[in-house]
Design a protein around this nucleic acid. Structure first.
Lengths: 185, 185
DNA sequence: CCCTTGATGCAGCGATCGGTGCGTTAGAAG
DNA sequence: CTTCTAACGCACCGATCGCTGCATCAAGGG
């Protein structure tokens, strides 16, 4: 990866490059081995950065993992716009389920949950909540009958993440349809 | 805790005593601080046991946490028998929700998920699956219409664990009733 | 009651982790 | 182009982690 890393963050500058390299290193290490094997010196070495930098910028693995999770789960899925809430939700559940198929994503989630405590866990869902809110909001603008966000989150995000983390088998598109059907009465 | 620890495992003997002490130490440490601060020497010291023993019997924190989680979530909840599947499930969901209120339980789950990989996570739900299966089986014997285990797990265990880990707010009895209502058509 | 076997305690090894003071460099402002 | 500030790299420290032979001891079988 050296110095010519394709940067995902917007502003140029060394800080941004370091941040990107470190985030990338965390994702790589998480994809390669168990999260317990991840230490700050290891991450720093992989990122081509001095360990001191990581200690000073992030302080702990918990914060680092939280940040990486937040970045990874932010903007990874485009909020669908099919014209109906049902269509939006079905499409969205299928998309999230597909995303959760990636073992690297799973590893990152598990690590964020385990190491980062509640903050790490919420980093995994905050953007999903925003997406759900957007879809519900749009339906409300359309004048449709809008269910509660909590209710939708419980019954969509719940099974979605439950299967990903505890079961290991993602849901099919049919499964997504059934799930949405159960929410929209 | 010294030597007069009330033993939960069946056979008497030193091995069983050590196992119990170590499990207890893990739970205590997990309840006190972040899981990343937990190391084998620390656990051993707390258990009043030599670190070598832990290294040899468990090998890694992952296996240890998996075992502790399996023990903790095994037999902690009595399968209800109210006479109807709906009643059983409502009671059971409420019980599990209550159990998930305990911060120590949450800490253990998070650690098992993060450190133990998939095995650690499945240790948190395998007994719940058994309980669900028992209730469904009983309903089947009664001659009732029995939903699929997968479906029930998705829609009950999903929201239950989702709220516990990602949201942090447990569900009320009313919430449990609604959830069960959505599963039983 | 003794004896065999497996598990546990002990001492100590190398490796590496987390963290700090100081000099240097890259980026941005004027 | 010059200057100023914040971020980074370097060298180094103590602490402790993970792990391995060897001696010891408790549990259960004959």
């Amino acid at each position: 990866m050296s110095t010519t890393v394709p940067i995902h963050t917007r502003p140029g500058g060394r800080s941004a490059r370091v941040r990107a390299a470190v985030h990338r290193a965390v994702e790589e290490l998480l994809a390669e081995g168990p999260s317990e094997a991840m230490t700050i010196p290891l991450v720093a070495a992989r990122a081509g950065v001095h360990p001191t930098t990581v200690y000073r910028r992030w302080g702990s693995l918990a914060e680092l993992l939280g940040g990486v999770a937040a970045s990874r789960f932010s903007g990874d899925i485009v909020v669908p716009d099919t014209g109906t809430l049902r269509g939006d939700l079905e499409r969205w559940v299928a998309d999230v389920a597909t995303d959760l198929t990636d073992p690297d994503v799973l590893a990152l989630m598990r690590a964020a949950i385990g190491t980062g405590g509640h903050d790490g866990a919420s980093a995994c869902v905050s953007d999903r909540h925003a997406q759900l809110t957007a879809m519900l909001e749009r339906e409300h603008m359309r004048g449709g009958d809008t269910p509660e966000l909590e209710r939708v989150a419980d019954r969509l995000l719940g099974p979605l993440y439950y299967r990903a983390i505890f079961v290991g088998s993602p849901g099919s598109p049919d499964w997504a349809r059934e799930l949405v059907g159960a929410v929209l009465v």
